[in-house]
Nucleic acid binder design. Sequence first.
DNA 1: CTATTGAGGATTGTTGAACAATATCTTAGC
DNA 2: GCTAAGATATTGTTCAACAATCCTCAATAG
Lengths: 214, 214
Amino acid sequence: MARSTAQRVATTLRERIEGGSLPPGTQLSEEALGRELGVSRNTLREAFRLLVHESLVVHLLNRGVFVRVLEPADVTDIYRVREALETAGVRAVATAPAARREALAEAVAQAERAAEAGNWLEVGSADLRFHRALAALAGSERIDAAMDRLLAELRLAFHEMPSPRHFHEPFVARNRALAQLLADGEHTRAEAELTTYLEDARRLILDTMREADR
Amino acid sequence: MARSTAQRVATTLRERIEGGSLPPGTQLSEEALGRELGVSRNTLREAFRLLVHESLVVHLLNRGVFVRVLEPADVTDIYRVREALETAGVRAVATAPAARREALAEAVAQAERAAEAGNWLEVGSADLRFHRALAALAGSERIDAAMDRLLAELRLAFHEMPSPRHFHEPFVARNRALAQLLADGEHTRAEAELTTYLEDARRLILDTMREADR
DNA sequence: CTATTGAGGATTGTTGAACAATATCTTAGC
DNA sequence: GCTAAGATATTGTTCAACAATCCTCAATAG
């Protein structure tokens, strides 16, 4: 559990960004943040580098670091990568260990329980876990890490979603259907469903973003 | 082209690593390197962060940074990601702009010219360009960046290849065949060829690595 | 002889202050 | 209103010091 000061500071900032108290576009001032968190500027800069690596912030030379602002083009790009990685998972389902396949069903069940309880934010988290588990079928550490980064970026966009229910509800049943297709060995149909799923989700996000820009 | 000192330092270290003068496993001492390159420890540490992001070095807490040592498991992992990303490119070939499709033929031609000239290192570079162009058909900045990182990692393994000709020669013709299948719209066969191509290349590297461990 | 422990030395982790380089804001002049 | 020059604030980089951690190696116990 040994972690450096910079890593702890990065965790604090990550929570603030994902929690919304540091909204996209905010500049992270070295002097102010360092004083508030009780760390030196050098250490803070090391923490910034970690967050840059996670794409949660961007670093502009001589201007500083800013909480990432997700453009529509970014959302489109992210969904292209998701399609590539999750499709790779679908294709590897036959050779994946049983534990990884069970993780899919587990995430679906969690999403359904959260939906019944009306906890739509948790539904969203379970949805991301499901798709992370999907990509994890490929059995690659690098794919897992890439998915983690992608989904962290996407969470920035989720913050702009005015109604979590409207956004997450339709996908609960579709996740179950997709999991069922995979369990039944219907690989081709599973791939097709995944593609339309991602296409629909992407469009929903983009429409909402355009809506918000008025 | 404004670049910070840290970025320039990272570039020289990158060149030394890829050039072989800093072989895998070497520790990058903050004190010694900082004195030699005429930069402070803090700036050097910022440069290290950039290289960590590129996976060229690893950072162990309280122990320092070391030039990445590629294990057989890493090679297997990298080829899983390559399969996912390059397959995504193959699938998007129909919708890709003409310029991107021409980049494929260009890389094939360069590899063939280099092979005729007996310049096998250049053949290797052209091979990587071809596969980078393949993934670029997907039209995603993040996929492009991921491929760049993956191929930079792979170069670490290429250093251990005793005979560049033996390793690169067989793949020149296969790249041309693959490009032809794509130009002909034979998507299914192209995907199949890509899979066996990557499988063969991976096995060749792994066999060589095991050979070298004796 | 092997394994463990502990002291010492070397390296990294972090700090705070200082100055340089750059960007942004303000103001003067047209 | 617009441009240009200067003032101000922020980041980029350095330096020196100290704290925390790891590694080496010898001394010791079994």
